[in-house]
Nucleic acid binder design. Structure first.
Length: 547
RNA sequence: AGACUCGUGGUGUAAUGGUUAGCACAUCAGGUUUUGAUCCUGAGAGAUAAGGUUCGAUCCCUUCCGGGUCUACCA
């Protein structure tokens, strides 16, 4: 999809302004900085589309930067998964970077800070440091180590790096302002000791930089012009700028914050995703009920639809909750154009055409997709016995029910017009078979088939059936914004996955994983890519009011 | 309580110091249709409040009100 809208979001406005003031276009560079401790979800997609979209528009580049400053939480397996997801979304990054690429430089700069009296080693335990920091509503108090000689800090920092300290025995702190109203400026920690193996630098380091100390400097080293992040980092911007200013380089990246994506009826918080996955509420990261990119992909969402969605939601600084229906509308719009229309009956009820010859089989042509001529046609068999949906029959029609009932006519899609004549009922009241007669002159395509019939039914021949397994996914929570609630699990829907078997037309015998279909009058389905057998995952139901 | 920040229909998001505030999704109604889908048409629905600046304010300023973030050796 190509977007040619005139209006630009506030971030692009800032960029445009920078350009107007003389910032060279070719120095524009963006970055997407995931932490390799989980899979990407649609919230990340918003950021990815923003950064890569901007880059595309201005012919600039995006670095993919793994924010690997915390080896206790990060794992290498996520790196490839993240790269794979970004590629799937359709974007190509310029440089693949790691925050750990900058460790050496960060260490040196830290030394420089100490020498200039802008940082010191604090040897107090964590809880004391926290207490001294106080709360946002009262000033903090200085650490007794704040005024220790530069020389001492220098020696200590070296020792920390050389492994002479245990975890928690010391940290490097920036000397800023313990009385600042911004907690981030109350002598934030720059380096802490972590005696673990880093997934990339292995055992080279015993000290690891904190996010704030690593991020802006990585931006600087990579020459990122505009560093876009979510709103919760607004309070970090003064620190971001303080660090950069004190490194004393002229060109600095600019941090701009925007509101992260929230979607109704789903969870996006990493913590919550971990819980439902680890505790077995869902299968894995690629469970189609999740809003992870892998989950959405498996459910049948296309990269185009996700990009389209990210474009539709816009960029601003307001907290927002986007209705899930907007996402669904994006995928419907695309699937409507590309999905092959087929007939599948999911809740079968047998129908016998009384006046149809016993051994006759006819094959009718059916369009694969009337939205696109080039998708071609296929043939569908019909014999005396077939299946229709149980919901498509009512003994006696009501005012709003114009499907099959006794004495009423409906059309069998691509075949004949039939009229209901009777039905067989069990003693329990359960209808087990319907009988009908067909209008022999009403074959689809013929002149006499053009009569106006109120309803067209999908159906599947009873002899030539193919067993179909579908997975239908419902909302995971009975709560509009589960992400906003701490006790979201109380609202977990334990029946969110329904395995439904049905009958499909023979055409479906040779489907391939990942192919998209529209089961007519039911919904869009996609062939599961993980399962060894053929399983149709329901992507989204059709927009409908009565069925 | 403090700092920072946000406030446009139900939900998102635009434009604008000046005739009827646009678009999308959602909702409702009608039309087309061999999918109650798609497609087409239409309708309802919006600036928290009070001051000020101005000939004129949704837009600029002040105050109020309401929401969010911040008290990690996470990111």
């Amino acid at each position: 999809m190509i977007y040619t809208n005139i209006s630009i979001n506030f971030i692009e406005e800032i960029i445009q302004e920078d350009i107007n003031k003389g910032f060279p276009k070719k120095k524009l560079r963006f970055r997407f900085p995931p932490e390799p401790n989980g899979y990407l979800h649609i919230g990340h997609a918003k950021s990815i589309c923003l950064n890569f979209g901007l880059a595309k528009k201005y012919k600039a580049f995006v670095n993919l930067r793994f924010d690997d400053t915390n080896p206790t939480k990060e794992e290498n397996i996520y790196v490839n998964a993240i790269k794979n997801d970004i590629q799937w979304l359709g974007f190509i990054w310029d440089k693949e970077c790691y925050a750990s690429d900058c460790f050496e430089k960060l260490y040196k700069w830290a030394f420089q800070f100490i020498k200039e009296g802008k940082a010191y080693i604090d040897e107090q335990p964590q809880d004391i440091i926290l207490k001294q920091r106080k709360t946002p509503f009262e000033p903090g108090i200085d650490s007794p180590y704040r005024t220790r000689p530069v020389r001492e800090s220098l020696v200590l920092f070296k020792k920390m790096k050389d492994g002479k300290f245990e975890e928690g025995e010391g940290v490097l702190r920036a000397k800023i302002n313990m009385k600042s109203a911004n907690m981030n400026l109350r002598d934030p920690i720059m380096f802490r000791i972590l005696k673990v193996i880093h997934q990339k630098t292995k055992n080279k380091w015993d000290v690891y930089p904190i996010y704030d100390w690593a991020h802006g400097q990585s931006d600087f080293i990579e020459k990122i012009s505009h560093s876009l992040c979510s709103l919760e980092f607004e309070n970090h911007r003064p620190l971001y700028e303080w660090y950069l200013k004190n490194i004393k380089k002229k060109e600095r990246s600019k941090q701009i914050e925007f509101a992260r994506l929230n979607i109704s009826d789903t969870i996006m918080s990493k913590r919550k995703l971990y819980i439902v996955i680890k505790d077995g509420f869902v299968e894995d990261w690629d469970d189609p009920r999740l809003s992870s990119l892998r989950g959405l992909r498996r459910k049948g969402y296309t990269p185009e639809s996700i990009r389209d969605f990210c474009h539709r939601i816009g960029i601003s600084k307001r907290d927002n909750v986007i209705n899930l229906k907007l996402l669904e509308s994006s995928i419907r719009e695309q699937l409507n154009k590309i999905a092959i229309r087929v007939m599948v009956v999911l809740n079968p009820l047998k129908l016998v055409i009384e006046n149809y010859p016993e051994d006759k089989i006819e094959w009718f042509p059916a369009e694969n997709n009337q939205e696109s001529q080039k998708s071609g046609k296929r043939k569908i068999p019909l014999s005396k016995k077939l299946y229709i949906e149980r919901e498509d029959f009512l003994e006696k029609a009501t005012k709003t029910f114009h499907r099959l009932s006794i004495g009423k006519e409906v059309r069998l899609k691509n075949a004949y017009i039939i009229k209901g004549t009777g039905f067989l009922k069990e003693s329990t009241g359960n209808i087990i078979e319907i009988s009908a007669v067909y209008d022999t002159k009403s074959q689809s395509g013929s002149e006499s088939s053009r009569r106006k019939i109120k309803c067209t039914l999908h159906w599947v021949d009873a002899i030539q059936t193919l067993d179909i397994e579908t997975r239908q996914y419902e909302l995971l929570f009975s709560l509009e914004v589960p992400d906003a609630k701490k006790y979201f699990l109380r609202f977990f829907n334990h029946h969110s996955l329904k395995i439904v078997h049905g009958y499909g037309e023979p055409f479906l015998r040779k489907v391939r994983p990942g192919e998209f279909f529209q089961f007519q009058r039911i919904g869009y389905f996609c062939v599961d890519q993980k399962s060894s057998s053929i399983i149709f995952n329901r992507t989204v139901i059709l927009r409908q009011s009565h069925l």
